[in-house]
Simulated assay, not measured.
Amino acid sequence: MTTAQELADQRHRDHMRTLLAQAAEQFGFDLAREPVFGWRDRTIGAPAHSPHGDLWVRVTTEFPAWAYGRVWTGNTDATALTGVPRPEVAEQVYRVFGDQLATPDGVRAQLFVIARLLLRIERGDDPAVAPLLHQRARELLGR
Rank of each mutant, 00 (worst) to 15 (best):
R40D: 06
A102C: 04
I44P: 01
G142L: 09
R143M: 10
R108P: 00
R33K: 15
T82S: 10
E91D: 13
P127Y: 13
E34F: 13
T2F: 01
R108Y: 00
T82M: 09
G83T: 00
H134R: 14
L132S: 15
T76A: 15
T76G: 15
G106V: 01
G98S: 10
L141N: 10
F63R: 07
E88W: 03
L119A: 13
T18K: 06
E62D: 06
M1A: 12
G69W: 00
R11F: 01
T2H: 02
L133P: 05
G74F: 11
W72F: 08
Q135P: 13
F37V: 13
R33A: 15
D41R: 04
Y94C: 00
G142W: 05
H12I: 06
D30W: 08
P64L: 06
Y68G: 08
Q26W: 14
L31G: 12
V96N: 00
L101S: 00
I121D: 13
A23V: 11
L132F: 15
T73A: 14
H15K: 01
L132W: 14
I114N: 01
T3G: 08
E34C: 13
A4M: 06
M16P: 04
R70Y: 05
D77H: 11
P104A: 06
T18W: 04
E62K: 02
Q10Y: 00
I114D: 02
F97K: 00
E122P: 14
